[in-house]
Design a protein around this nucleic acid. Structure first.
Length: 696
DNA sequence: TAATGGGGGTTTTTT
DNA sequence: ACCCCCATTA
């Protein structure tokens, strides 16, 4: 018996040491030790002699993979090495997308992909849609405004991921665009053609190509044969495409482990479907199931409240959990804090956070969670005012890193001279070059003149293209472009440094605050040193972008303390001692956006919001504070004052309220809108006096 | 042709 | 507040 198994309960141990060569499904509710079991299982596999590199671990984020493997290492470190395979390899781990990327790099030519293909992140893909869109603006059909570029990509991606016809997707997601369906379809078609011709691969393509490879009679068995064991975490959030890949890789060897909790399925908008977990036997009839339902994380008071929310789901809720230690009642009841408005909410959160810190809890043991990234903006101002350090996860932040994307564009061009998106970005870095000039230069390069021609042939046309640039930037552009070609025998790191030197002057000229940006470029050059090719640096960045400003260069000081702010989506799988949940008001949570026009329809949209709420409630170990501002602004970013008097989230209605202690904060007298309106204040006189004083 | 400013429209979650 | 479109300016 191995040490690390001794701490598991019987079900957990059975899951960790499951031996039959058939698929295993572990249905594991929130806080039931899912991560421990998965890490134990990997440790057990390795301890029993499976070579590490023959284990594939698919997780939802790369961070999850790292955490899991770190725990596996800790478990194994305490053990004698007898029985372990003497292998220098490492467990293969990562997200579906990152493993797909590695696979495609390895087999690119066999899959009909160009060798140095570029991976587009969301902003690159929207840029490409922008290029396509520009062409359509002149078209006769476009009397009306075309949808914005981000919406075009969204429509495209949903159609690809769900397999639904574009017209259906438009009808559900963006009904106001229905009249433009034909134009949109034409643009999607053009987008696909462009990607192929230019050697570009977007997130969806990574999965599509991987599936095609896994199903291919020649390549597929080879890919499948690389692994003895495949383990998939968060299986409730996989989509049909991902299931196809897993199934294709396990046609002969059946050793597959999937772990998930359908009560925590929150990625329906990405075409994920918990049915893949629930109906696992349909795809894998020989499967065995082990269920974990004892919650070791949360206090019984918190757990009961979360269960009560789940119990209100009309179709039932599979993860009604029992507390591990019901006799331990030292936990506090969840708190429901009603606030006058966002100001009051931000103040209340700060006060409570500091209270907990006074009581000896680090900031890092607390988290503030919210439905939408912008929900924390007001709080962030207050945190800054009070000098409370924080790191925010979730939301899109790529715009902050324009200079990073500039150098990455150069890296991508070095591997793929036909990358039109990167050319467009690079050329506009030059002073006096806008969309029109960039367009002409790119036309002169004739990127897709002949699909089989080499990068060198494209670059051979550069002198002609360069002539179209304003004279004063021509030299700088020539220098940068000449740095694209790699020198014989040069390492990737050296090439990266050469590109940095060539691009840095352009970035310095383009951004007013360039000095602080240049350090970020060194981070990229360092990353390049450990990559097989420059395009990989850009792909890594696309597949795992920095999650916060502090994340890029790493936390400034190791032992500094900070509060975590996160969307509920980004908080999946994590836990803290104390959780503050913001904006638990109907309209914000559940989000109005999710109810009417969700991809999977109104009812499903509501149920997904309910599961999201449940995910948030099951993050804390010891204390849960839920905040309900009475008044909130409709347009958080607009200058107008449009607001609503809000109701608490419908998930907090009925029976659920019995599980909460309810407070007004800070003071109920200040809250009621009409209460103070009767007092007459001589405001006109006061203002007049103040103004007069100015001219005195 | 690039840069700039006004006006109108939209507004979630992420690999 | 951001994006998009159009008109004006240098």
């Amino acid at each position: 018996m191995f040490d690390f198994l001794a701490e598991l309960n019987p079900e957990q141990r059975a899951a960790a040491t499951f031996e039959a060569p058939v698929p295993l499904r572990i249905v594991a509710g929130a806080g039931t030790g899912k991560t421990t079991v998965l890490a134990s299982r990997v440790a057990w596999l390795l301890a029993s002699g499976t070579p590490p590199e023959r284990v594939l671990l698919l997780t939802f984020t790369r961070r999850a993979a790292r955490q899991l493997l770190a725990r596996t290492e800790t478990m194994l470190a305490k053990m004698p090495t007898a029985g372990r395979a003497r292998s220098p390899g490492r467990v293969q781990g990562g997200t579906f997308h990152s493993v797909a990327h590695r696979t495609l790099r390895h087999h690119a030519p066999r899959l009909g992909l160009s060798d140095g293909f570029s991976v587009l992140d969301t902003s690159d893909a929207t840029d490409l849609f922008d290029l396509v869109r520009d062409q359509h603006l002149g078209a006769p059909t476009a009397r009306r405004r075309l949808p914005r570029k981000a919406l075009l990509l969204d429509l495209y991606s949903r159609a690809v991921n769900t397999g639904q016809p574009l017209s259906d997707v438009i009808a559900v997601v963006a009904p106001w665009c229905s009249e433009l369906t034909e134009s949109i379809a034409a643009m999607c078609k053009e987008y696909v053609v462009r990607k192929r011709a230019l050697g570009l691969v977007d997130f969806d393509d990574l999965l599509l190509y991987w599936r095609a490879a896994a199903l291919d009679p020649m390549v597929g068995p080879q890919l499948a044969g690389e692994f003895d064991h495949i383990l998939v975490d968060e299986y409730q959030d996989v989509n049909a495409l991902q299931v196809d890949v897993v199934a294709a890789l396990r046609t002969s060897d059946r050793r597959l482990t999937v772990v998930g909790d359908d009560a925590q399925a929150i990625y329906g908008f990405r075409a994920a479907d918990p049915a893949h977990l629930l109906d696992f036997e349909l795809a894998f009839p020989d499967a065995t199931t082990i269920t974990l339902e004892t919650n070791y994380r949360s206090s019984p008071q918190i757990l009961s409240a979360a269960n009560a929310v789940g119990a209100q789901a009309p179709a039932g809720f599979s993860a009604i959990l029992r507390a591990a230690e019901p006799e331990r009642s030292n936990g506090n009841r969840p708190q429901l804090l009603r606030c006058a408005d966002e100001d009051a909410q931000s103040n209340a959160v700060c006060d409570r956070v500091l209270e907990h810190r006074e009581a000896g809890l680090r900031l890092r043991d607390q988290a503030v969670l919210f439905r939408a990234a912008h929900h924390s903006e007001h709080l962030e101002l207050e945190l800054s005012r009070r000098a409370i350090p924080y790191v925010k996860y979730g939301g899109l932040r790529y715009l902050e890193a324009a200079h990073v994307k500039d150098l990455l564009a150069a890296f991508r061009l070095a591997d793929n001279a036909r990358d039109e998106v990167s050319w467009f970005r690079f050329l506009q870095l030059l002073d006096g070059v806008g969309p029109a000039t960039a367009r002409r230069v790119i036309d002169a390069l004739a990127l897709v003149q002949n699909k089989t021609e080499a990068d060198a042939d494209v670059l051979a046309r550069w002198p002609d293209a360069s002539a179209l640039l304003p004279a004063r930037v021509r030299l700088a552009a020539d220098t940068a472009v000449s740095a694209l070609a790699s020198h014989a025998g040069e390492t990737v790191g050296v090439h990266a440094e050469r590109l940095r030197v060539a691009i840095a002057p352009l970035i310095e000229a383009a951004y007013p605050d360039a000095i602080s940006r240049l350090a970020d470029l060194d981070v990229l050059v360092n990353a390049a040193a450990s990559c097989a090719r420059l395009a990989d640096v850009a792909a890594d960045y696309a597949l795992e972008p920095p999650r916060s400003t502090g994340d890029f260069a790493g936390p400034p000081l190791i032992d500094e303390d900070w509060l975590v702010l996160s969307t509920v989506h980004s908080a999946k799988g994590l836990e803290w001692d104390v959780v503050h949940l913001l904006h638990a008001a109907d309209g914000n949570f559940p989000s109005d956006m999710a109810l009417g026009t969700a991809p999977s329809g109104g009812v499903n949209g509501l149920e997904e919001e309910r599961r999201l709420f449940y995910v948030a409630m099951t993050r804390p170990r010891r204390a849960l504070n839920v905040y309900v501002p009475l008044r909130y602004h409709h347009h958080p970013r607009a200058h107008d004052d449009a607001h609503s008097w809000s109701q608490p989230s419908r998930f907090l209605a009925g029976d659920v309220t019995h599980y909460f202690d309810e407070h007004w904060t800070p003071n109920p007298d200040l809250v009621l809108p009409a209460a103070n309106m009767t007092a007459v204040v001589p405001a006109a006189d006061v203002v007049a006096g103040q103004l007069d004083a100015l001219w005195a």
